[in-house]
Amino acid sequence: MSETAHTRPVRFRGGGFAPKPNRKIGIVVFVVLILLAEIGTRNGFISALTLPKPSDVLGTFAELYQSGLLWKHLIPSLSRLAVGACLGVIVGVGTGILIGLFSHIRAGLVPLVAAIFPIPKIALLPLFVIWFGIDEGSKYALIAFGTFTPTVVATYGAVDNVDRGLIRMGQSFGLSWMSIVRKIVLPGAMPGILSGLRISLAIAIILLVAAEMLGAEYGIGAYILEAGSLYDLERLFAGVVILSVLGVLVSAAIGLIERRLLNWRV
């Protein structure tokens, strides 16, 4: 073949499909969107009824912080979230593992979980109030119930995906049942459980607001609902921002756990 006419470097086509973490871009997206909203509201391009000025929202937020009301709303919300989500996740992971390991439990519970999953848990709120009382009990139950189903589904899927060869290896070395579950099944299912947790915890935050619709004096959800009923957009947005920040923090925390716990992944 003639050298000159057809000699060229081989085209690189192996790139992509390997997202790398880059925090800066995420922050830039937020900043640009907020700046656009600020400019738009300032020069009247966006009317005050459509969107509050980001700077006003910030002001409301500062006020909330200075008056000490922020913590008064945040702390009950966080404790509801913590208790409810922990309950839902622990029971969910446990049930998911049982479904993953025992055929009778699987046969009995999988249809039940499938039946419960699509029920909007908010619709059951009155029922929860009767069962668990109007106080904290019904709020915990709502959040726990909402996180339970996605956790179960993610967990038993993850257990199903654990390499059977590894379980067989454990049996062939005479490991006890408990050891196999603790040292092989659980760590093997961990990637799936953690990615399920991202979804369950986001659902928990959504349900927090729903839970506080009923008889909560303090709480982010109560604060947002009150602002909403008064059409106080600044306060509404201040509350929404808190929820978003909460979501970002939870997601970052899971990312951290994944990096620590799953560094063995190729």
Partner: peptide, 28 residues
């Protein structure tokens, strides 16, 4: 463990170090 396998696909726990993989079978 009188009857002990060596598997074609190694069957090592990816989340345990070399030492951890060996200690797995001694822990019980």
């Amino acid at each position: 463990n009188p009857l002990t396998y060596i598997f074609q696909d190694f069957a090592l726990l990816p989340w345990r170090s070399v030492r951890g993989n060996v200690s797995l079978v001694l822990e019980d």
